[in-house]
Amino acid sequence: MASHRRALVTGASAGIGEAFARELARRGYDLVLTARRADRLEALAKDLRERHAVEAIVAPLDLARTDGPEALVAALEAQGLAIDVLVNNAGYGVPGYFEEQPWATHAAFIQVLMTAPTELAWRLLPAMKARGYGRILNIASLAGHIPGSAGHTLYAASKAYLIKFSQSLALECAGTGVHATAVCPGFTYSEFHDVTGSRELVSKMPGFMWMDAPAVARQGLDAADAGKAVYVTGRVNRAIKSLFKLIPDTLALKMVQRQGRRFRTGPRGG
């Protein structure tokens, strides 16, 4: 159990982020919860305080703001709140073909899923190293291990980035007491597919393909504590990753293309 250690969870208002917050609180960590929806954060913080007697602070923030990570860390430092565990979870999908979305939409996506987690890690890492303890969990995806699909052009690319970033960071932090881990879930029960409008389509996936968010959080935190640089949650997902490593790239791309037609949203889907 944690003793006077604190975790920062981004995208904590629902889904995998909420599950990480709950699991960290269960393990005794104090929390800083950030997301856009302040009402949900307040309700979650209240519940965690009552259930686990931990400190839970709410810091509403839209990480699409380019000054968001700097402002958040400055506010924490001003309050004397050290962060021992960073869970970079905030994220979403942008359905539709690449050129059909305005550049501002893509720029915001890159800011939230790539720039913000990288900057938060950069700003919090020195103090973690100085204290001799830290965990940086970048919530990537199985999608980062397989070819990108049409219709979510930047999603797999952003997750592949988080995987490579975590690997390099893990090597740089070796021996310091700080562990960096890319946690790679597959299909997970959450609001993600409701937000992207793909709930009806992905519901066609067989039940054995799905995991629940609490299981992802438990496995992810255990992997970080064990010092694993990359961890794919669930046996089925690990089998899929292994399969795509073995087959030729051209065949893998064709498989993703064929499967993607079944689950694509937007005007060119189907």
Rank of each mutant, 00 (worst) to 15 (best):
R27H: 10
A157T: 11
T250G: 06
Q259M: 05
V230Q: 10
P185C: 02
G15K: 00
A160I: 04
R218C: 07
K164N: 15
A53L: 01
Q219E: 13
A90P: 00
N88V: 07
R123T: 14
A19M: 06
Y155A: 00
M211H: 11
K241W: 15
G11R: 00
T115F: 12
R37P: 03
G197L: 09
A90D: 03
T105I: 06
R5M: 09
V230R: 06
V73L: 08
R261H: 12
P126F: 06
K241Y: 15
E191R: 05
R22P: 00
A116H: 03
K46Q: 05
M128N: 05
S198M: 03
M128G: 09
V54C: 08
T265W: 01
V216N: 05
A74K: 14
F98T: 09
D67W: 08
L124I: 11
Q219T: 12
V94I: 15
L253Y: 01
C184D: 04
H179P: 04
I163A: 02
M211F: 10
A43M: 09
D249Q: 11
S168V: 04
W122P: 02
H52D: 02
S198H: 03
F187A: 15
G269Q: 07
D84C: 09
D225H: 04
S203P: 04
R36Q: 10
L63H: 12
L201A: 12
L33P: 01
P95K: 10
T265E: 07
I247T: 13
A224P: 02
A143F: 08
A224D: 04
G260A: 06
G15R: 00
T250E: 10
P69N: 07
R37E: 11
L33C: 09
G93S: 14
R36W: 03
S149E: 14
A121N: 07
I83T: 12
M114R: 12
A71E: 07
G93A: 14
S190Q: 05
H193V: 13
G266S: 11
A2L: 00
Y133V: 11
H4F: 15
R6W: 11
G80W: 15
A108H: 15
Y92Q: 10
P185F: 01
Y133D: 12
A213P: 04
E55R: 06
A215E: 15
A143G: 14
I83F: 08
V94Y: 11
L113Y: 08
V94R: 12
T118K: 01
A223K: 00
H145P: 05
I139P: 09
V9I: 08
A127R: 05
C173R: 01
T118E: 03
L243T: 12
H106C: 06
V54G: 03
V216K: 02
Q111N: 08
I163H: 02
Q259R: 04
A56Q: 08
A35M: 01
H152W: 07
G28R: 03
A143R: 02
S149C: 14
G28Q: 07
G17W: 06
S141V: 10
Q101N: 14
L246P: 09
H106G: 05
G177L: 13
Q101C: 13
T153Q: 09
V112A: 05
C173T: 03
I139H: 10
G266A: 10
P267M: 09
E23F: 03
D47L: 00
F208A: 02
V236M: 04
C184E: 01
A116N: 02
A217N: 11
L48C: 07
R131I: 10
G17H: 08
R268Q: 14
